[in-house]
Design a binder for these strands. Structure first.
Length: 287
DNA sequence: ACTAGAACCTGGCCGC
DNA sequence: TGCGGCCAGGTTCTAG
């Protein structure tokens, strides 16, 4: 699933392949893909045509392309299954092609492909000192942001009165972390996801966030190896990093540190993976 | 104001 | 072989 490293791989691919190019025609094949563009698909297509892409930017799992002229950007969120593919115009359409952008140079087109349609594209003015699209305004900085402040993020976790994993997944505390990298960061920091945030020490808070930053950097390095000239990699899996996962998806396999079988627990209609020995459950709160 | 949980969506997989 | 049900999960919305 696309979390920060996967989205950054896509951003880099877009920077390589669509920067400086002018959009000529936009085809919206599925209205749900542009549902966050409130003026509708026709407006989206009309307003995007003729614009030149001047930058590819990202915060957390949000990605956007700055356009020339007024301060406007095409915002993209990949959801769970979204892909940005750079493809030759003659290539047959993907089954789940949702939006197509053709360019003035008749070169490779940009295709937004999304099986589960949780993702989408929309146009927004850029606002504020950081020139952000409105839907990104409430998203906290991510660990790869040069202005990311580790201690501020630890303070944000403390402010959330909940379990540690829930806080890690809260994109207003820090962004970019999803279920996979949350489990990996918790495993590296030897902390259970249900540990109450108010009982987290500063050192533990720093440890889990440092681990999150490190594991996402490592995943980015691995994911960066997997796309070639015409393919912007968003395969929905974790690039080539899935073979390096220590906790996520490793149920019943031995913990790489201690050999204890990794456990799987239900968490928010999904799963959490952890080592029962390295990451003991927190003691129940005293009444 | 803040937190928890449901809803959204499709295809692969499993058991019967 | 076919079918029902479960599972994956990021974000937004709603309920409490």
């Amino acid at each position: 699933m696309p979390e920060l490293p996967e989205v950054e791989v896509v951003r880099r691919g877009l920077a390589d392949h669509v920067l400086g190019r002018t959009v000529t025609a936009v085809e919206v094949a599925h209205p749900r893909a542009v549902r966050r563009h409130v003026a509708g698909g026709a407006d989206f297509a009309a307003r995007l045509a003729g614009r030149t892409i001047t930058a590819a930017r990202r915060r957390g799992k949000y990605l956007w392309l700055d356009l020339d002229g007024d301060d406007t950007a095409v915002l993209a969120h990949l959801g769970m299954s979204g892909q940005m593919l750079v493809a030759d115009p003659g290539k047959p359409d993907e089954v789940h092609l949702r939006v197509r952008l053709r360019f003035a140079d008749d070169g490779p087109e940009l295709r937004f492909v999304d099986q589960r349609t949780f993702g989408g594209l929309s146009l927004h003015p850029l606002a504020g000192p950081d020139r952000l699209p409105a839907p990104v305004a409430h998203i906290a900085r991510d660990p790869m942001d040069p202005a990311f402040n580790l201690d501020a993020a630890v303070a944000g976790i403390w402010r959330r009165r909940t379990g540690l994993k829930r806080a890690l997944l809260d994109q207003t505390v820090l962004s970019g972390i999803g279920n996979i990298y949350a489990d990996e960061a918790l495993w590296r920091a030897r902390l259970h996801g249900e540990r109450p945030t108010e009982r987290l020490t500063r050192a533990q808070g720093r440890a889990v966030l440092t681990a999150a930053a490190e594991v996402m950097e490592a995943a980015l390095a691995a994911g960066g190896t997997s796309f070639d000239a015409l393919y912007v990699n968003v395969n929905g899996n974790s690039g080539y990093f899935d073979r390096s996962l220590d906790a996520y998806g490793q149920a019943d396999r031995p913990c790489r540190r201690c050999g204890t079988p990794i456990r799987r627990e239900a968490f928010m209609n999904r799963s959490s993976f952890s080592c029962p020995r390295c990451q003991p459950r927190p003691r129940p709160p005293r009444p």
